[in-house]
């Protein structure tokens, strides 16, 4: 789901598990997408720290 909501922030490996594609801080232009991924994760597995 996160890879759909924020395809530039999250991807998936060869078995479909989510992987984070960026290192360090989230670029400003991807913040909205990252927030969307956070708000759509049914497992509450994503937490964006300020």
């Amino acid at each position: 789901m996160c890879a759909i909501a924020a395809p530039d922030v999250f991807g998936s490996d060869e078995i479909g598990n989510a992987v984070v594609l960026i290192e360090g801080d989230i670029p400003r232009d991807l913040e909205a997408a990252a927030k969307r991924a956070e708000g759509n994760c049914p497992e509450r597995a994503i937490e964006i720290r300020e």
């Binding site: 759909i4 479909g16 969307r36 708000g39 759509n40 994760c41 049914p42 497992e43 509450r44």
Partner: peptide, 23 residues
């Protein structure tokens, strides 16, 4: 809808393995 934490595919270790195909 912006925030949608739906569990149509379940959650945890048994979360639907075919969800990408279903979507």
């Amino acid at each position: 809808r912006e925030n949608n934490r739906h569990v149509a595919f379940g959650a945890g270790i048994h979360r639907c393995a075919g969800s990408n195909l279903a979507r």
